[in-house]
Simulated scan of single mutants.
Amino acid sequence: MMKNHLQTNLDQYGTQAQAYLDSPVHAQGPDLVRARALVAEHLPAHGQALDVGCGAGHLSFALAPHFARVVALDPSAPMLGTVRRAALDRSLPHIETVQSSAESLPFPDASFDLVCSRYSAHHWTRLEPALRDMRRVLKPGGRLLLIDVQGEEDALVDTHLQAMELLRDRSHVRNRTVSQWRGLLAEAGFAEVEHEDWPVHIDFPSWVARMRTPASRVAMIRELQTEAPQEVQEALALEPDGSFTFTTGLFWAKAGLHWVKTS
């Protein structure tokens, strides 16, 4: 039976919640350290935060000590169950979970001091309305924290990266470039956009194992890598076993004076 993208996404991640909770790539990183520092510097303590597309909850866990309430939102019920159990294990009872999609946030206008998302937006098919709704639920002067894999500005390199991502994970949509993100955030009503990025080494065997990528598609990724031109191999730092390096980008923005109602 043919499935829509949301069902594909749920199928892919519903059975992999524990793997993502345990994944070193997701559980740690300089982006999480920087996220905590930005929140501590710019936002009052004991406010409210919303983590959109929370996955296994690593961003919620990292930021929770600063807030009185953190809402971890995701369309996947198994992911949210993992977040609830892990939050209790970490003595973070003020993390609550809500099952919903990014473009239809079930909250009143101006509800949160921070809206954030990490390693999720590249799965969203309706990114523009999702960003507008994230802007809607921010309080005046509230902040957006968005972390995701960056697309490559060089089209040749980007095509190879996107193909590798899609072959590995059928729920992948697109990694946006820095220039694309700046345009999207401005259109959604965000201002004063700051950007930082970091290289992230991806261990190929664990990368495909975490998603349970079928052997036939693993072979396709490896063929794509080995036949890639020199420019691509150098840009992605491709290694003999298929391991490579991508870039994680962090965007920190302020809610602008106006927002456009989500259609």
Rank of each mutant, 00 (worst) to 15 (best):
L236G: 05
L224S: 00
E234H: 11
A228I: 10
E231M: 06
T262V: 07
K261T: 06
T226H: 13
E227L: 09
E223S: 11
K254E: 10
S263Q: 12
A255K: 13
L250A: 01
L257H: 08
T248Y: 06
A253K: 04
W252L: 12
L250Q: 00
A235S: 10
A228C: 12
L238R: 00
L236M: 06
L236C: 10
Q230F: 00
A228P: 05
T248A: 07
L250S: 01
H258T: 08
T245P: 02
L238D: 04
F244K: 02
Q230T: 08
Q225A: 08
G242A: 06
W252F: 13
A255E: 11
E231S: 14
F244I: 09
F251W: 15
P229Q: 01
F244S: 01
W252Q: 10
L257C: 03
A228Y: 04
T248H: 03
T248M: 10
E239R: 09
T248I: 14
T247F: 07
L257I: 07
S263F: 07
S263C: 05
E239Q: 14
P240Y: 15
Q225S: 00
E231N: 03
G249L: 04
S243Y: 10
V232S: 10
W259Y: 15
F244Q: 03
H258V: 04
E223R: 13
A228V: 07
S243P: 05
G249T: 04
G242L: 12
G249K: 04
V260I: 07
L224N: 00
Q233Y: 01
E239L: 12
T248C: 11
K261C: 03
T226M: 10
A255N: 10
A235I: 09
P229Y: 11
H258D: 05
E239W: 13
T247M: 15
V232P: 14
T226N: 05
L224T: 11
E227N: 03
H258A: 04
E234N: 09
E239N: 01
V260F: 06
Q230R: 05
Q230K: 11
F251V: 03
F251Q: 08
P240R: 05
K261S: 13
L224W: 00
A253L: 03
A237E: 12
T248S: 11
T226D: 02
E227C: 08
S243N: 09
E234S: 15
S243K: 07
D241Y: 15
K254D: 06
L224A: 04
G242P: 11
E227H: 06
P240A: 06
Q233A: 06
Q225G: 00
T262L: 02
E227M: 14
L224K: 00
L238V: 10
A255D: 14
A253I: 07
Q225E: 07
Q233N: 04
A228R: 00
A228S: 07
F244N: 08
E231G: 08
D241I: 14
H258R: 03
G249P: 05
E231D: 09
T245C: 08
V260L: 04
F246V: 15
E231C: 10
S263M: 01
A235T: 02
S263A: 14
P229E: 05
T245A: 09
D241G: 07
L224G: 01
L224D: 00
F246D: 05
L257Q: 13
P240D: 04
S263H: 02
L238A: 05
W252V: 06
K261Q: 10
L257D: 12
E231V: 13
W259H: 15
